[in-house]
Design a binder for these strands. Structure first.
Lengths: 108, 108
DNA sequence: CCGACATTGACACGCTCGTGTTAAGGTGCT
DNA sequence: AGCACCTTAACACGAGCGTGTCAATGTCGG
């Protein structure tokens, strides 16, 4: 078999098999599948799992924080809206920010 | 008084006074204070509150998602680490996962 | 100086998250 | 064929989030 099964991957990454399945359902770490339906964890997934654990430990992140970060990358609409919110939160005026966005669009 | 008190701000933004205090404790919308200790909501804060409600409604965001987004802006160390995690995850995996979710829905 | 509203702090409650466990069945090496 | 491990689905449960409410006290305008 090419890639580790869920139990083997769990042993090598200090996650439980349960959590590996959970992370897959959230779309964070998605292994390939064998013909029989077994999860096949390869090097990329193992690295993701180790990095993920490190992020939680070092920065106290929730898993849901990473899910949100993933959404930010995948949904430009969302990223724009969030940026807009922060524009109103910094001392830059919202209207000015909108204006400059329009200017950028015109310039493009 | 220059700025709205918490009750007045609540009426105009469709948040409860309780939630306005909560959002302040999270560092998301922080009004100035009067000499007597009353919160003074001005235009900037009112706009932030309305935009915040809109983000929740339109994108289904949690408040904690916005708190995390704020951390991302303020902590370059954190942003770098999160970017690093995504570097190990090419978006092919995401597409495959979406496809299988779709198949599951069709099969149901 | 009184009444309306503010302040902080605490208790409460339903909901979701992260995690384990168990059940009922499938895969695959030897 | 058997044994170890996998699959999904379900139930369980403590912890934390979002929110309301109540109590004790402070501020302010008329």
């Amino acid at each position: 078999m090419d890639g580790l099964k869920v139990g083997e991957a769990a042993e090598r990454t200090a996650w439980s098999p349960r959590m590996l399945r959970y992370l897959e359902r959230l779309g964070l770490v998605v292994p390939a599948r064998t013909a029989g339906g077994y999860r096949a964890y390869r090097l990329r997934e193992l690295n993701q799992l180790r990095t993920l654990a490190e992020l939680r430990r070092r920065f106290g992140l929730d898993i849901s924080d990473l899910v949100f970060a993933a959404r930010l990358r995948r949904e430009p609409e969302l990223r724009k809206a969030v940026d807009g919110w922060f524009a109103g939160a910094d001392d830059l005026a919202w209207v000015e920010w909108e204006q400059r966005k329009h200017e950028r669009l015109l310039a493009a």
